[in-house]
Design a protein around this nucleic acid. Structure first.
Length: 425
RNA sequence: GCGGCCGUAGCUCAGCCAGGUUAGAGCACCCGGUUGUGGUCCGGGAUGUCGCCGGUUCAAAUCCGGUCGGUCGCCCCA
């Protein structure tokens, strides 16, 4: 636009949420809380939008892309380092520990939604401030909760009109022999093929070897086809856990694809990892991603407290949804059209009477003529127009017009609320 | 952090390559045709520092340079 100091635009990667799209956002939260996760025992909570920087450094992992390159970190006036949250789970687990929720009845099942912040180049389905719904079930190690949460995720996406495929993997135990043993085997494999790898993948062998699976470089992809799969290296406990998760998903008739290249980019993930992807979202196909994080509480300084959860990208969900992308509520049932000064002075009492009776009602506040008011009535989505002019005033009546059929009739003013309610129900 | 494409009315865009009256269209908006009737139709109207700065030229929306912004992709992730 302009670089004049007198005009402003929202910072890069942020945007204003305006009607009618804003209605769809609230609809997403309503479906999540009241239709899917609330009835399954998940309760709403919130954490601060910024945390002590250490929460993310220790929780998410200092070597991760998110923590090392993408955080909005600043010092407050007391010199403490604070960071706008780049993801929700670390803060939620911090809150669970701080408030001793883990001492109460387990598992703790929580739903949380709000803005996250990551400083990276915006593109379709990716913003610097973006909104996530986070679901967490904390306290249970067993595979049943994994299956429950994946089923809820799938059903929520379905309710929201997004067609997604489920990808599933197990990353093994962090401190168990399987994860470490596998990483060693993988690094050994990468070392023997080092000269065949793309240069940028070569440099990551030591600090983040799993990332090689996500590479889009042709030479690396060829090498990775022969790479050892983590699912072949799981210890007995992790293998049994994974088998049981799959058995439960099968019993629920949930379709999934085992993808041993599915590697979540945050350090805290262990065992079950999953992702729902859509083809309708652009290059950022991941609409919902999550997994188990059995070591997170300990890395934040707490005791052993296993958990599993996921983050859902609301921006991406709306891109992928075929039913919500056009959804719009119709709250206004009646539009009051007032003709002349006398009628105008009587219009607000009528509008108010309707509203107090629970009927959505609106009226003209711009001094438009009748034609303009009828147009507004049409645009408001109202089922009824109530027309009030000198004739009606003198008779103590109003004209009630059905905007769909065009039929209209005069009724006593005192009958208005009753008549409108009867026909609406 | 790197690359491709694009900046003209509220929105979507034409005009630019071959510089030359007053910069256009569709949609949307407002008013009127119907002094009391919307969604269709007809007529009229308002709205632009052609992103910004500089250069070339008698003359720049148009050519050149820079800059800012948007968008899509890479990396990474929701």
């Amino acid at each position: 636009m302009s670089d004049q100091p007198s005009s402003f635009s929202a910072p890069r990667g942020t945007r204003d949420l305006l009607p009618p799209e804003s209605w769809r956002w609230h609809r997403v939260f309503d479906v999540a809380l009241n239709r899917v996760f609330g009835p399954a025992g998940y309760e709403p909570m919130d954490t601060p939008i910024f945390e002590h920087t250490e929460v993310f450094e220790r929780g998410v992992g200092e070597a991760t892309e998110v923590v090392s390159k993408q955080m909005y970190t600043f010092n407050d006036r007391g010199g403490r380092s604070l960071t706008l949250r780049p993801e929700a789970t670390a803060g939620i687990v911090r809150a669970v520990l701080e408030n001793r929720l883990d001492r109460g009845s387990l598992p703790v099942k929580l739903l949380c939604w709000g803005p996250m912040f990551r400083q990276e180049r915006p593109q379709k389905g990716r913003y610097r401030q973006f909104t996530q719904i986070d679901i967490e079930a904390i306290g249970s190690e067993g595979p049943a909760i994994d299956a429950e949460i994946i089923e809820l995720a799938a059903r929520f996406l379905s309710e929201a009109g997004a067609e997604c495929r489920l990808l599933l993997n197990s990353l093994g135990h962090l401190d168990g022999s399987c994860r470490l043993g596998y990483l060693k085997a993988l690094v050994d494999y990468l070392r023997t093929h080092e000269n065949e790898l793309a240069p940028e993948d070569r440099s990551r062998i030591d600090d983040n070897p799993l990332r090689a699976f996500d590479s889009k470089e042709e030479p690396t992809i060829a090498v990775m086809k022969g790479a050892p799969a983590i699912t072949d290296h799981l210890c007995n406990d992790c293998e049994q856990h994974f088998d049981e998760v799959r058995r439960l998903l099968d019993a629920l008739d949930l379709e999934y694809t085992i993808d041993h290249t599915l590697v979540r980019g945050l350090d805290y993930y262990t065992r079950t990892a999953f992702e729902f992807v859509s083809d309708d979202v652009g290059a950022q196909a991941s609409v919902l991603g999550g997994g188990r994080y059995d070591g997170l509480a300990e890395s934040l300084g707490g005791g052993h407290l296993p958990g599993i959860g996921f983050a859902l990208g609301v921006d991406r969900l709306l891109l992928a949804s075929r039913t919500l992308s056009e959804w719009q509520p119709r709250h206004v049932g009646v539009f009051v059209v007032a003709l002349g000064d006398r009628a105008r002075s009587e219009a607000l009492p009528i509008v108010t009477e309707l509203r107090r009776a629970g009927v959505g009602a609106d009226w003209d506040l711009m001094g438009r003529g009748m034609k303009g008011q009828m147009k507004s009535a049409d645009r408001s989505g109202a089922n009824w127009a109530v027309i009030l002019g000198d004739d009606e005033l003198d008779a103590g009546e109003v004209t009630l017009k059905d905007l769909a059929t065009g039929e209209q009739q005069r009724i006593a003013r005192g009958q208005l609320v009753i008549r409108v309610r009867a026909k609406e129900s």
